[in-house]
Amino acid sequence: MTIKAAIKDGLFGADKTHSFRVSRISGVSNTEPRAFSPGCLKFKVTGASTAVIENPASGGDKADLCTFYYSSSDRKKVRRLVEEIKALMPK
């Protein structure tokens, strides 16, 4: 299984793509959304870039390519994704 993300660098900037196999994930943390803050899904990936997107589109939070922010409407989907990834991670 491979996780792939495309992140736009600025409103009119180029997409930066990043992908990694679940077998390279050594840790997953999920902070669920709260009243005034988005949820945050972070992967610890062996050998992954730690470059930070300095100019995220639509005023998003600066994050590295292994960190994903999400809204409360996606809470259940993210919980299910985390469970599935943890089941596939090497023990």
Rank of each mutant, 00 (worst) to 15 (best):
T31N: 06
F36Y: 12
G59I: 05
S19I: 09
R75W: 05
C40K: 13
D74H: 09
I85L: 15
S72Q: 13
S49A: 07
S49K: 07
G60V: 09
N30G: 01
P38T: 05
E54M: 15
D9K: 11
A6F: 10
S37V: 04
V28I: 15
I3R: 04
T17G: 00
T31D: 13
S71I: 07
L81C: 02
E84R: 15
V82Q: 04
S29V: 12
S29Y: 11
S58P: 04
N55Q: 12
K42I: 03
A14K: 15
P56Y: 08
K8S: 00
K4S: 14
S19W: 04
A35H: 03
V22F: 09
S29I: 08
K16D: 01
V28G: 10
A87K: 14
T67V: 11
I7W: 01
A35K: 02
G39D: 10
F68S: 06
V52D: 03
L88K: 15
K91E: 13
K16V: 13
R21Y: 06
T46S: 12
K4E: 07
S71P: 00
S49M: 02
F68M: 00
T46A: 14
S23Y: 00
S71K: 12
S26E: 11
V45H: 06
G13H: 13
V28E: 05
V82P: 03
Y69W: 04
Y69K: 04
V45Q: 03
L88R: 15
G47K: 02
R79I: 03
R21E: 00
F43S: 00
A35F: 12
Y69T: 00
K42R: 15
I25C: 03
S19V: 00
A51I: 04
A57N: 08
D74W: 11
A87I: 09
H18T: 10
S73F: 07
A51V: 10
S29K: 14
Y70D: 08
M89C: 02
V45E: 00
E32D: 03
E54V: 08
K4Y: 05
M1E: 02
C40L: 14
K16L: 06
R34L: 09
K91Q: 11
T17D: 05
L65N: 01
G10R: 12
I53W: 02
R34F: 06
K44E: 06
T50L: 11
T2E: 13
S71A: 14
F20Y: 10
I85Q: 08
N30E: 01
